[in-house]
Simulated assay, not measured.
Amino acid sequence: MADSDLIKLYSARILALASELPHTDRLAAPDATVTRRAPLCGSTVTVDVAVEDGVIAAYGQEVKACALGQAAASVVGQAILGRSRAEVEAARDQMKAMLKSGGPAPDAPFDGLEVLSPATEYKNRHASILLTLEATAEAMATAEASACA
């Protein structure tokens, strides 16, 4: 990777987002907790959700990832409260399409993930970027299943 490519990939905005992670306190009594790991790079994200009336009422995350994974977790964390499982799954699917096939950035309120569009060329970074959305979608599904049981 050339120096100019690294500068483009790790922009000042991405680095700022990585340093501004919201919801870093884990929840004392979550409805669901999910940990996801990117095997290629070892990035790990643990997400706690509390769900009320089908939307995320409280959220906690522990992020041990590269700057790109941290930036994604920051954007998601800023937008996650009040979101439904369908919204989280849509953002996850749109983010995958943006990274893998040049699709548009996810819809609002997750449109801030557009800042990660330079990573489309770096397939080895995709899993880390997707961790938080994948873990959150899985946690929502788990919480919903537990509520129905």
Score class of each variant (00 low, 15 high):
Met1Leu: 08
Glu114Ile: 11
Pro22Phe: 02
Ala145His: 11
Leu81Glu: 01
Gly69Ala: 07
Val75Asp: 15
Ala147Val: 07
Gly54Trp: 00
Pro22Trp: 02
Ala29Val: 14
Lys100Leu: 12
Glu144Pro: 04
Pro118Gln: 06
Thr44Val: 13
Val45Arg: 03
Thr24Gln: 14
Ala71Thr: 00
Glu114Gly: 14
Pro106His: 02
Val88Asp: 09
Asp5Lys: 09
Glu20Val: 00
Arg36Ser: 08
Leu99Cys: 06
Pro104Gln: 12
Ala135Asn: 07
Gln70Met: 07
Leu17Asp: 12
Leu6Thr: 13
Asp107Arg: 05
Thr35Glu: 10
Thr142Ala: 12
Leu21Ile: 08
Gln94Phe: 01
Ser74Leu: 03
Gln78Gly: 15
Pro22Met: 08
Ala127Asp: 14
Ser74Val: 00
Asp48Cys: 00
Lys96Thr: 14
Ser128Thr: 12
Pro118Thr: 02
Leu131Arg: 00
Ala91Arg: 01
Lys64Ile: 14
Val49Phe: 03
Ile14Thr: 10
Ala28Trp: 09
Thr35Ile: 00
Ala135Gly: 04
Ala139Thr: 05
Ala147Gln: 08
Ala108Asn: 09
Asp111Gly: 13
Ala149Tyr: 08
Lys64Gly: 11
Val45Glu: 01
Val55Glu: 13
Thr46Asn: 10
Ala57Ile: 06
Val51Arg: 02
Arg125Ile: 04
Thr24Phe: 02
Asp48Ser: 04
Gln78Met: 15
